[in-house]
């Protein structure tokens, strides 16, 4: 993702702060594209916010995580 894409996306992400969502599916990533390898391992999640769904990275967590 280049800097302009990051700036446009970051404006949107703030609206999800504090929201609760249902995890529809999740994958723990062990291999990533070149611009994300420094963040490995990270989770890639698909979340249901009731009125909409979003996909997110869950970075900087421990390997043995669980979702409640």
């Amino acid at each position: 993702m280049n800097i302009t894409e990051y700036w446009r996306s970051n404006k949107q992400w703030s609206k999800y702060l504090g929201k609760k969502a249902k995890v529809l599916a999740v994958s723990l990533m062990e291999v990533a594209a070149s611009d994300q390898t420094a963040l490995l391992p990270y989770s890639y999640l698909l979340l249901d916010l009731e009125k909409s769904k979003i996909s997110l990275m869950g970075a900087a967590h421990q390997r043995n995580f669980t979702f409640l």
Binding site: M1, E5, R8, S9, L24, A25, V26, S27, M29, V31, A32, A33, Q36, L39, Y42, Y44, L46, I54, S55, L56, M57, A59
Partner: peptide, 18 residues
Amino acid sequence: REKEYGSTFPALYAILAN
């Protein structure tokens, strides 16, 4: 590119697999 940041093709199909 706007909605699936952090994804790779394996990640997207992993979501479908799960």
